[in-house]
């Protein structure tokens, strides 16, 4: 044993002279401690899960959830396999009919299998990004206008303050009814349910962006405004060259907040309205009530959390990329 310690000492002594302790420190901070945290969490989870009995059996521990992750992936593979087979058969059939009767125009029918877990993830991601981008397109110009004009700010502020705390669940019935009333083309480009989710998301994640943009624009350094005045920049150029860049850090803070809100809202909206997506997956599993359901829901919870985290990291990376203000915190 003493020999081994000596040997390692020699090794580290040669490879990492002096840096050694600092390297070790950051290794502990960024790798060992988070790992330890995760391990403790898994342990607590599996111990606690053992003790909770539900009507659907024991609460799923980490192992059961891991199993379901695998199962969900397998299901997805099988479904894709079926889809390919479906289209192949259709092609063969069409080819045969065309061979018999050259006038026959082949029809391609779409595959209508059940959406898999992965499909639901994609649907949710597409919906959340669409709703979020629509909100960005509305909120940033509005925020700039409100930030530039104290009069407009006084006019709009009460409305923002009232609508900001409204839960998505309250908007949803209204949105659903309005969409059904107004969007009734015989051949819709996008599904109604998609629009419902999207608009609900937009309505809920608009406000943090409007407020942050307005605050960023209103709080712009007087001196920079004075520079613009001395140069007599026209209004549009003033916004483009001075206001917008100055407000970029705040705008992105608002966007990050909004994207977080959007993701939470979307899952709730999908559950409540049975709109396709991860929320519907959770609700379906809950209704399904099989012995695997809780483990599958738990898997969905982890995925929802992980995606939320990644979205936030993505926004942070984007913020750092475009921002001149390099002192952005985590």
């Amino acid at each position: 044993m003493t020999a081994t310690t000596l040997a390692t000492e020699k090794l580290t002594g040669i490879r990492l002279p002096r840096l050694d302790s600092r390297f070790l420190g950051s290794a502990i901070k960024y790798v060992a401690l988070p790992l330890a945290g995760i391990l403790v969490f898994l342990l607590l989870w599996s111990v606690t899960a053992q003790r909770i009995d539900t009507s659907l059996g024991k609460f799923p521990g980490p192992a059961a959830v891991a199993e379901q992750f695998d199962a969900l992936y397998q299901e997805h593979q099988r479904s894709r396999e079926k889809e390919r087979a479906f289209y192949e058969r259709q092609e063969v059939r069409n080819a045969e009919r065309v061979a018999k009767d050259p006038d026959y125009v082949p029809k391609i029918r779409a595959y209508t299998g059940k959406e898999t877990f992965l499909d639901q993830i994609v649907t949710s991601l597409v919906t959340v990004m669409s709703g979020f981008l629509l909100a960005v397109a509305i909120a940033i110009p509005l925020g700039i206008a409100v930030g530039l004009s104290p009069a407009l700010n006084s006019a709009v502020n009460p409305i923002i303050q009232v609508f900001k705390p409204v839960s998505p669940l309250a908007w949803l019935p209204l949105v659903t009814m309005v969409v059904s009333a107004l969007y009734s083309t015989p051949d819709p480009v996008v599904a109604k349910s998609f629009l419902n989710s999207l608009i609900t998301v937009t309505l809920c994640c608009l406000w943090p962006m409007v407020i942050n943009t307005a605050v960023g624009v209103a709080g712009i350094d007087r001196d920079l405004v004075n520079v613009s005045k001395v140069l007599r920049l026209p209004a549009l150029k003033h916004v483009q060259k001075i206001v917008l860049p100055a407000a970029v850090p705040m705008i992105f803070t608002g966007m990050r907040l909004s994207l977080g809100v959007a993701w939470m809202v979307l899952i709730a909206a999908e559950m409540l309205a049975q709109n396709p997506g991860l929320g519907k997956f959770v609700w379906d599993e809950f209704q399904n009530g099989s012995s695997d359901s809780l483990a599958r829901i738990m898997a969905a919870v982890l995925v929802i959390g992980a995606i939320g985290f990644l979205l936030d990291r993505g926004m942070l990376a984007l913020q750092k990329l475009v921002s001149w203000d390099k002192g952005i915190s985590q």
């Binding site: 350094d221 001196d223 920079l224 004075n226 520079v227 005045k229 001395v230 140069l231 007599r232 060259k241 001075i242 860049p245 100055a246 970029v248 001149w324 203000d325």
Partner: peptide, 29 residues
């Protein structure tokens, strides 16, 4: 009655636009 470039100001605290380089700051003017 209003500010204008014929009365250029060197501000007490420089007032450069922080997102532009030195060159770009002069370029804007």
């Amino acid at each position: 009655t209003e500010p204008g470039p014929e009365r250029a100001v060197v501000f007490q605290n420089h007032s450069l636009l922080p997102w532009l380089t030195a060159y770009e700051n002069v370029e804007l003017a």
